[in-house]
Design a protein around this nucleic acid. Structure first.
Lengths: 156, 156
DNA sequence: CGGCATCCGATCGGATACTG
DNA sequence: CAGTATCCGATCGGATGCCG
């Protein structure tokens, strides 16, 4: 049974001229994003994702398959020699790192009371927190949303 | 009719210890994220969002309400003196800027052929493209995903 | 124009059982 | 352990109509 043949009524954005929309479309849903987060955190096995997320197995199967099909994850033979597969980030998947970090920092700043414990992303070398992401102009100025504008269409 | 009283079976993450999960939960869904994108691009009116997104009005109503309730958008009297409302980003909403920029850059890099036109975010002053977001350590080193690790729980 | 109310099919996701 | 298969209620979202 094929898959891409079905008529999907869910609105697609994969032909949008907006890169944000295409990204959103490619990731698929929030579960997928949390799977990617777990992959960054070191999860590789089906069961790891399943326990971490508490998602139903059939859902997880579908999401993993979609992420593999979308080139975000790659399915490789299990490193322990078992008959199973492991799911690792492709370069394209690793390129989602700033997205995850941005969401993490937004969450830290807005949804945790001061002192409330939460998981934290640190650099391996020194164990320190990361610097807050900054949006910069080509010449290095910090840009706020109001300092930017959208060119509706631009060739490259 | 109240709203928060309903038993939501959809898995919630608003009590997760992971900031990414709380962010995901707070935004709600992809529609909401695209609404936020439009807000960054200058949309303020119901009809602007509606035309831009092509979303059903009842859905848009619900999403706008949720974003206002979540403190991402604020509903203010229309600037043209009409009886209607406009929806503008709160500071918390504006703090989503890096998230949108990260998604935009990921989309640009992965879902557009070279030379394929797409909307583009530029700085107002010079009209140049933005710098690619970088994840940095506290002391300014560029960090790849492998250079980081997650501390499961950390008190602030 | 900016919503709200309603209907309805499609999809989602949780649960469960089964396989190797 | 790693899925696959199936069921089923809940939710989503598109369409439509109405109202100020």
């Amino acid at each position: 049974m094929r898959e891409r043949d079905v008529m999907v009524t869910r609105t697609r954005f994969d032909d949008s001229e907006c890169p944000v929309a295409r990204s959103v479309d490619a990731i698929g849903d929030w579960w997928s994003l949390l799977i990617v987060r777990d992959a960054f955190d070191g999860s590789r096995r089906f069961g790891e994702f399943q326990r971490s997320l508490g998602v139903a197995k059939n859902i997880l199967t579908a999401r993993l398959r979609a992420l593999v099909a979308g080139g975000v994850l790659e399915s490789v033979p299990a490193s322990d020699g078992s008959a199973y597969r492991e799911y690792v980030l492709t370069p394209k998947g690793k390129a989602l790192f700033p997205v995850i970090v941005a969401l993490r920092q937004w969450g830290e700043q807005n949804f945790f009371a001061p002192g409330e414990p939460h998981s934290q992303l640190v650099d391996r070398r020194q164990g320190h927190r990361l610097r807050v992401l900054e949006v910069l102009s080509a010449d290095g100025r910090r840009l706020n949303p109001d300092d930017t504008t959208v060119h509706k269409i631009s060739t490259q």
